[in-house]
Simulated assay, not measured.
Amino acid sequence: MDRSESSAEIDAAASRWAVRTDHAPLSRSEQTELDAWLSGDIRRRGAFARAQAMLIHARRTTALGADFDPDAYLAAHRGEAEVETERFTAVDRRRFLRWGGSAAATAAVALTAWFGFDTSAEAYATTRGEVRLVPLHDGSQMTLNTATRAEVRFTQRERQVVLSSGEALFDVAGDAGRPFVVIAGNMTIRAIGTSFTVRRLPDRSVQVLVREGVVELRPGSGGSKPGTRIAANTRAVAVSDAPIRVADLPPAEVSRALAWREGMLSFEDETLADAAAEFARYSDWRISFADPALGGETITGLYSASNPRGFARAVALSLNLEVRETAEGTVLVR
């Protein structure tokens, strides 16, 4: 059985690739080799992104020149230096400034460790209609759906994400010593090496959809309360003051639920009212019904999340309805 790469080995390889890509454009064969390396382990993409960021900092240091005095610089820019104390101590900054570009690869690897155990929270957000992939410091990936906000805080004991609003997909790198925990409203989700989504929308229950692996759900902030374990192809809904509702899903339905990653919305016997509400998450253009009973009609299909008008026209054609447009949106009329 092949031995799994350690984090240190991945960081070292990432720094070498970062230096190669920074030095000159890769040949076609080199690019193919890099793509294969990145796809081989989910942790590699995050490590590569960090190594590239460290090269940028090292290059800025080199540009200061051989006569640059880091102590004098820090004394002259004391106010700016203090702003950075949340990420580096004064000693760390002084050492980093002395390293310079000649030690870029070494700096990338060393600073990866610092970033991996940074305890300050990092906030990420998307606007309406935006989908954003965020490589995390441990090699995990977080994909934010439309109008989503999350804060990430990693420590030596735990990897924590607080989902304030919206929806996110987490592809978690395995680390048995540091559990990956997502807090969303009244629910705490704990995972080690898995893939799952968490949805937290206004006036709705928190939903968790597991694509791979197993997660454990606990009400509130976790603690000693009993947890509920759910496996792949399962959806859990956390209802206030009630047991967690769990339902098995066919793999095809799980795939449909993740169509938003490609900018699409997939419906299977969905009511028009629910479909219209889903489109409203991605656009200011609203879909309404002259007769409220129309909202109970069902629709099946794959549609662009950014094209509510196209969806409304397709629905009208399918159900023999009339389309009327106002300044605010589309009204469907029987």
Rank of each mutant, 00 (worst) to 15 (best):
R3E: 11
R16F: 00
W17T: 00
T21Q: 12
D22Q: 12
S27C: 04
S29Y: 02
E33A: 13
L34A: 11
D35A: 14
W37N: 02
R45V: 11
G46Q: 05
R50K: 01
Q52G: 09
M54F: 11
L55R: 10
A63C: 01
P70F: 08
Y73V: 03
Y73E: 08
R78N: 15
T89W: 01
D92H: 00
R95I: 10
F96Y: 03
L97C: 05
G101N: 09
S102C: 01
T106G: 12
F117C: 01
Y124S: 11
A125S: 14
A125Q: 14
T127D: 15
T127N: 13
R132M: 12
V134A: 07
V134C: 05
H137K: 06
R149E: 14
T155I: 04
Q160I: 05
Q160H: 10
V162G: 00
V172Q: 02
V172A: 09
T188N: 03
V198L: 05
L201T: 12
V206S: 02
Q207M: 13
L209G: 09
G213T: 07
V214D: 08
L217N: 10
G227T: 06
I230K: 05
T234C: 15
L249Y: 10
P251N: 05
P251W: 10
V254C: 02
R256K: 11
R256H: 09
W260C: 11
W260D: 11
S266H: 15
E268G: 07
L272W: 10
D274K: 13
E278L: 03
F279C: 08
S283Y: 06
W285N: 00
W285D: 00
R286G: 02
A290L: 09
A290Y: 08
D291M: 03
P292I: 07
L294P: 00
G295P: 00
G296P: 00
T300C: 01
G301E: 10
Y303E: 11
S304W: 01
N307H: 11
P308I: 08
G310F: 03
V323W: 13
A327W: 00
A327P: 01
